[in-house]
Simulated assay, not measured.
Amino acid sequence: MRAILAVLVLVNVLLLALHQFGVIPTSGPSGSGEAPVVPPSAPSLQLLSEASGELPLAGHSQSDQDQGSVSDALPLCVLVGPFTEHGDADSIGQRLRALDVTAESQNIEVSDGRGYWVHLAPELSQREALRRLHELQAKQIDSYVIPRGELANGISFGMFSRRALAEARRDELQALGYDAKIREVERTHREIWLVMPALQARALSDRLWEELLAEYPTLERRQNLCPGVASE
């Protein structure tokens, strides 16, 4: 009996010594439930459902995408014209549609450049505007009432293509006691053009364009942003 007790005491002393020198760990893998410490440099895991954004495409960098030109993203059209009559444009349009080209005649606003409008500020009412007009016409000053727009019920003294001419007219009116002003405006006019997608127009042969030019020598062919896109 004493021998058994001595053996047990000896075993306990041996186990205590092994724990003391770290040969046997004090806790197993489950331990106290604390998460193991991960070095800061270790990569973290991420669920696919947590990922955001798009995968980068092979062979494409973000800088390549950012540097794309605006014209690559906006629709381009070929414009043929101008025509004096819609009938001529529609006739050519039918020929092109037979070749699977979507061609339509449209009225296109074409810029005439800047204009310089000499005018008086709007009156409080149309009656006051007419009274001012009669006063000016009695002095043989060419003028008319502006019927609509931001300057409605104002008095117009004409549109000039050159600023120097507009300034000379303004100075004449101011010398007569009228507070004439100059407004710079964009002048436009309408033309009839045949409009078609650029990709479809490129498929047409040079011979076809030569035939059209022989029939209508004044026609021009231009490539531009499709009408409606350029004005946005």
Score class of each variant (00 low, 15 high):
Val118Asp: 00
Val118Met: 00
His119Tyr: 15
Leu120Ala: 03
Leu120Asn: 03
Leu120Phe: 07
Ala121Cys: 11
Pro122Ser: 07
Glu123Ala: 14
Leu124Phe: 10
Ser125Asp: 11
Ser125Thr: 12
Gln126Ile: 08
Gln126Phe: 11
Gln126His: 09
Arg127Leu: 10
Arg127Ala: 13
Arg127Phe: 11
Glu128Ala: 14
Glu128Met: 12
Arg131Gly: 12
Arg132Ser: 11
Leu133Asn: 05
Leu133Met: 09
His134Ala: 09
Glu135Ser: 11
Glu135Tyr: 05
Glu135Met: 10
Leu136Lys: 11
Leu136Val: 10
Leu136Thr: 02
Gln137Glu: 11
Gln137Pro: 04
Gln137Ser: 02
Ala138Trp: 14
Lys139His: 13
Lys139Ile: 03
Gln140Trp: 06
Gln140Ile: 08
Ile141Met: 00
Ile141Thr: 04
Ile141Trp: 04
Asp142Thr: 11
Asp142Cys: 03
Asp142Ile: 03
Ser143Val: 02
Ser143Asp: 10
Ser143Pro: 06
Ser143Lys: 01
Tyr144Thr: 13
Pro147Ala: 00
Pro147Leu: 09
Gly149Tyr: 00
Gly149Leu: 06
Gly149Ala: 07
Glu150Arg: 10
Glu150Ser: 09
Glu150Gly: 08
Glu150Trp: 08
Leu151Val: 10
Leu151Lys: 08
Leu151Ser: 13
Ala152Arg: 14
Asn153Tyr: 04
Asn153Glu: 05
Gly154Glu: 00
Gly154Asn: 03
Ile155Glu: 07
Ile155Lys: 08
Ile155Val: 12
Ser156Cys: 01
Ser156Gly: 09
Phe157Lys: 05
Gly158Trp: 06
Gly158Cys: 04
Gly158Ser: 01
Gly158Arg: 01
Met159Gln: 09
Phe160Ile: 00
Phe160Cys: 03
Phe160Leu: 07
Arg162Ile: 08
Arg162Ser: 13
Arg163Lys: 15
Leu165Asn: 15
Ala166Leu: 04
Glu167Lys: 12
Glu167Trp: 03
Glu167Thr: 14
Ala168Gln: 12
Ala168Asn: 09
Arg169Asn: 05
Arg170Ser: 02
Arg170His: 02
Arg170Gly: 01
